[in-house]
Nucleic acid binder design. Sequence first.
DNA 1: CTGTTAGCGCATTCAA
DNA 2: TTGAATGCGCTAACAG
Lengths: 342, 342
Amino acid sequence: MSEKTTIYDIAKELNITAATVSRALNNNPKISQSTRTLVLETANKMNYKQNKLALALRSGKSNNVGVIVPRINTNFFASVIRGIEEALHPEGYQVIICQSHEDKTREIENINTLLNAQVDGILMSISNLPKENNHYLERIIQKNIPLIFFDRKKEMDNVSSVIIDDYQASYQITRHLIEQGCDKIAFLSGDRTLEIYEDRFRGYQQALTDHNIEINEAYIIPIKSNVVEGRDAVDKLLALENPPNAIYSTSDFAALGAIQKLKERNIKIPEDFCVFGFGNEPFTKFMELTISTVDQAPLEMGKITAQVFLDKINSVEIKKTGKTVVLMPKLFVRQSSTRIRE
Amino acid sequence: MSEKTTIYDIAKELNITAATVSRALNNNPKISQSTRTLVLETANKMNYKQNKLALALRSGKSNNVGVIVPRINTNFFASVIRGIEEALHPEGYQVIICQSHEDKTREIENINTLLNAQVDGILMSISNLPKENNHYLERIIQKNIPLIFFDRKKEMDNVSSVIIDDYQASYQITRHLIEQGCDKIAFLSGDRTLEIYEDRFRGYQQALTDHNIEINEAYIIPIKSNVVEGRDAVDKLLALENPPNAIYSTSDFAALGAIQKLKERNIKIPEDFCVFGFGNEPFTKFMELTISTVDQAPLEMGKITAQVFLDKINSVEIKKTGKTVVLMPKLFVRQSSTRIRE
DNA sequence: CTGTTAGCGCATTCAA
DNA sequence: TTGAATGCGCTAACAG
């Protein structure tokens, strides 16, 4: 009862050989219908379960896919993972999740662990790394294991990516703030060595330029994605001789912190100061003062990332090219940035 | 370069046999220091990586541990997983995460998937099941795979659990609300077929009884853990002839929804109505009106759950007993229930 | 201390 | 259509 039955067990039961059983179980055409049904029946009766490990050892495929994210506890990453799961689970893949915690060392460890686990592919959103060489990523490619980036990518040969149009989102946010009458817009941004943040910076920059607003370097503040950094940023900004009248934060958490601090300073939102976040975390909708933000279509991003992986793994020819799928983000303009109602 | 080197490759290189290489690599005492270092050096030089799959097939251990949670995107479960990871990763275990989405069918699928993946253990928080038999859980035990429950458990032989003292937490919450002057306390609860919710109900009940307050069945409303259900519950409660003046919700999300709706109805919190949540979701601290809640020590719970698993797997004797570790929850009394300041 | 052998469970090649 | 033999990479028992 507690013993697992193998194809040998059912072969013995039927006085045939394991090879035949294997063929019957795998829809191999070279087998008679009668033995096939017989095998299937007894396999079922004996509660046979294929040993995936043996299969993996033999085929070199594990049917495991690794996912590496900076952290699991944001709505964005949790939802992307959900999307990946939903697309991959029906295909028989098991998803293994690792968190890098924005730490390069940990990220390399994650990769090693996943490679050890013989994953068939790695889907990842890279961490806030300093400008580093790609050795540890190239190891994946050399092993012929598909690597797909989502959201946070790095430019690499033969690697596909699924991202949103950060530039567009950023341009639209900045334009929106300008249209609301804000002419001094601060930019709280994650590490710009990551493409997403650089792209957002470019969108911000271009929108200002297009509206004849000069960039003020003092308004550009590097932050990490948490509440405290948003609070601290406001302190810095309000200490300026010429403080801003709007904040565009690339993190909802920092946007929240900023709003808290502005309120503590008795600055009225949105009348005196507008705030725009990024990521559409659930709490942005919950607040008494709802927070404007951008939805990054995480569920869709996950599903498409999974699909890109499946396409790669299932294509007969070895694809040596990488493609980039770009999703369109969607702005949710809420109270924290709405002065003018249409 | 892209080929993986095996112990045979390095054996051939050194004109020894694979067994010797294996021994050298595994710190087997029966080997000379000289060959050991020689093997280690060349293994390193040839970039040898142990094939975990072969190891798993041979040893019957996969070094994978499965974690099943209702959902990944709440602070509580994400943090428990983080705790599990932190304890298990250093021991060489890889954590595979599955979401049951509170769905029984999905939960059974998860278990099958994990068993197929030959996990060495399953750590799970069970879903909101109707009173069901345990067949699908007993399959795990029969396979001799350690099963540990955390937070949401089911009474089973030979199965350990790590939980918080839900009864105590609930008693303290209810007592606190009474001390704040609330004498009509509604109870929004998850499915009481789950022990945690039944325990919380008992705590609520006992506190009322101890303070000579009669239970009002109309105040007890079953909910799911989301914002909308909290809003709807308030509608129901305020439609009563004798509406309550406090809500204790076993879900922070429902507590949030309740607060939203109460505000919309111009009911003052905490002056006219107190609200207490459960789970210490981050947003409870973020709100303009901060929400009283209970911290379930998720990180600690994860670490201990992992430790219980390690103890079980590493013990020489086959432990046929299950123990239950009970953690003490911590109340965070915030604005939503604070009338009296000390 | 080291070599030989065998088997974990499976799928595939070669014969029949 | 089926059987026999083989190997995926590793380690443990046994023998030397």
